[in-house]
Amino acid sequence: MVVSREEILHIAKLADLNIKDEEIDEYAKNLQDILNFVDILNSVDTENVEESIGIANNTNVFRKDEIKEFGNRDILLQNAPEQEDGMFKIPKVI
């Protein structure tokens, strides 16, 4: 499989990353190298093999649906790039 420049741009868009025109070929080459390497997995017989979803022993973990207040709004907001009146501030969206 060959990774095209268009595909790199499509993936970058999905990942919310800008890729400069001159960087596209390098990203494509890096991705291609890894994809060629992981092709080795096609030699593993996985007929009738179940997927491992993580490592846990397939038990669901339940907890009560109760709100626990963090209690310190200011300390959470102090990392915000921009805030106003105790809220995160973003540009107008509508």
Partner: peptide
């Protein structure tokens, strides 16, 4: 680079070939 690779293997059309296959080989 890793976000691009990760997004690629999860993207529509490649999910089964890469991600799902990897999860099976994990087993």
């Amino acid at each position: 680079r890793r976000i691009i690779l990760g997004t690629y293997v999860l993207s529509s059309g490649y999910y089964d070939a890469y991600y799902k296959k990897a999860q099976k080989v994990r087993t």
